[in-house]
């Protein structure tokens, strides 16, 4: 990869895994493992009633929960004016279960009872739109399905957006209801990344001239290494 040196700070991260959910800096993060995901409720995330949250499909709730926790951790949850923050998500199976659930409403009566509510969630990027409107985020919003064994492709895309000054901050992450995705387990992890100076404190993601990623000077060659470093720093295990 030909990209010049760049530094970004992970100003917050949020996660939902089989062991629970939380904000990176204020709770134990122990990575991802097989198991059933917790049912994140509206009141776990938002103080005020939110009718839309209850109507969402499981994939969108999972992704929105992790984005909400990441923004909270980064101090970006509250807002008064819309902000040019981008949203990038890597997923493998995306809304496939929702697709099946929706098509199950089409089949019995040749479409007469097709659910418009479910159909709206048969795009994998819908949950990013949910996050955008809740938090006033007007940046580039897209879901990526990558053919990258390192699973770092989406992080490089986020750094590109920052380095090329296409966005001021990016909430970037991974979301899958199944174990076929980059996390190799059901769950979601989102991080808020922002440009920073090389000597900044905190969680610093560095990309050198050869495209090598480092987190606080530790080389990152695949997503699993990033997860291990995060859980080493913030986990209890």
């Amino acid at each position: 990869m030909d990209s010049s040196q760049f530094n970004a700070r992970i100003s917050g991260f949020g996660w939902v895994s089989s062991s629970g959910f939380g904000c990176g800096h204020s709770s134990d993060f122990n990575g991802f493992a097989a198991g059933e995901l917790p049912q994140v409720q509206r009141q776990d995330l938002f103080d005020k009633p939110d009718r839309r949250f209850g109507r969402m499909d499981s994939f969108s709730r999972l992704g929105l929960a992790a984005i909400t926790l990441a923004l909270r951790d980064a101090g970006l949850e509250a807002w008064q004016q819309k902000r040019p923050v981008a949203l990038l998500a890597e997923t493998t199976t995306g809304c496939l279960q929702t697709d099946c659930d929706y098509y199950a409403t089409v089949l019995p009566d040749q479409g007469a009872l097709a659910s418009p509510q479910l159909f709206a969630y048969t795009l994998s990027n819908t949950f990013l739109g949910e996050a955008a409107l809740r938090f006033g985020l007007t940046g580039n919003c897209q879901v990526i399905n990558s053919c990258d064994a390192t699973a770092l492709s989406v992080i490089h895309s986020a750094l590109d957006l920052l380095q090329w000054q296409e966005s001021e901050a990016v909430a970037v992450g991974f979301c899958d209801l199944t174990d076929y995705g980059a996390l190799a387990a059901p769950g979601a992890l989102f991080m808020v990344v922002e440009p920073t100076e090389q000597d900044a404190q905190g969680l610093i993601l560095n990309r050198d001239n050869d495209g090598q990623l480092r987190l606080n000077d530790q080389p990152i060659d695949e997503l699993n290494q990033l997860l291990m470093l995060l859980s080493h720093q913030y986990g209890s295990a």
Partner: peptide, 28 residues
């Protein structure tokens, strides 16, 4: 059902064109 996913199209093209790239499908 995994063969029906959007990313399967990307993988098919990557192989069909022998690109062996870290290819991405954009879903927006």
């Amino acid at each position: 059902l995994l063969t029906t996913l959007p990313g399967a199209m990307t993988q098919w093209l990557n192989q069909r064109l022998a690109l062996n790239d870290r290819a991405q499908n954009i879903n927006a």
